[in-house]
Structure formats: C-alpha cells, structure tokens
Amino acid sequence: MFKINTNRDQLVVNKLRQHFGEAIENDEIMTDMLCITVSKQNIYDVLLFLHENDEMQFNFLTTLCGMHYPEKEELGVVYHLHNFIENHRIRIKTSTKISNPVLPTITTIWPAANWLERETYDFYGIQFQGHPNLKRILNMDEMTDFPLRKDFPLEDQTREDKDNTMFGRK
C-alpha cells in the first residue's frame, strides 16, 4: 500500500479544478492512488501544468499505457506521474473516440514517453500528434491490426474449431 497523502491529493485536485474547471471530469481515490479523468482537449495542458508548476512538480513519468473500452467505443491512455520531492503518485486518465483516436504527444514534456507512446500506438492504434517517430515498436511493421484491442482474438484468427469461452475471456 502506498501511503495516502490526503493533503497533497486535495491540493492537486483544487489546483487543477481552479485552472482547468470543466476539463477535469472526475477525481477519486482508487485503492491507494488519486485518479483524475481529464478531457481529451486539455490533456496536454494539464500534464504540462503538473510538470511545470512549482507546487505540483511531477517531475517523473512512471509509465503510460493504452486502454480499450469496447462498450463505450473509446480508447484511453493512462499516465502515472510521480513527484519525487513529496513522494506523491497520481494517475491521469483520458479517452478518445475509437473512430478518431488522436491525442497530443507528451514527448516534449518527458522524453521517456517516446517508446511508451510508440508501444501504445503499436497495440491500440492511438495516433500521438507531434510524436517524432511514431511507428510500430514491438510488432512487425507489416502488421495492420492493433492487437491489444479487445476485439482482436488471442489465438490464430483463421481457427474456427476452438470455442474461446472455454479458455478464459471470450
């Protein structure tokens, strides 16, 4: 369990709401970490604010990963940020329609996002606008699918003899 720092959590939420208002769609504590949902239009500004502001100082991007919500027809990205000085971790979420999966890149804020965004593009097909080198990283270049989307089957797609409901998630 991470230590929950209620004061810092409150400070971050208040500051973000004060600066971005409606763009902050939701904030809640998930198990032991503050989790903030931000609208797609403001995600770059929010992350830049969290990085640059003297009180926020989230200097470290822990990780970044893609998401697929098939029932909402949305793709999402989850950012984990870490403030080393206060030892405070938060999670930022954003989502975009699957028909137009475009989000701004954050490689200009944290260079560490470079490969992570490439990985997210590789597996979910999210286009990061402004990325210096957005191409597939772990899969082969010829691939046309985005394999971590929920509609991509785990096994060979041409196979019809196997009922997936018997083997884990369908």
């Binding site: 597996f123 772990l138 899969n139 394999p147 971590l148 991509f152 785990l154 083997f167 884990g168 998630r169």
Partner: peptide, 11 residues
C-alpha cells in the same frame, strides 16, 4: 516479443 499483456487478459 511474446505479447504478455495480451496473454494476461486471458489467464
């Protein structure tokens, strides 16, 4: 690459 994140969703 062995697609661990995908396999993990089915195990």
């Amino acid at each position: 690459h062995r697609a661990f994140e995908k396999i993990a969703e089915h195990r």
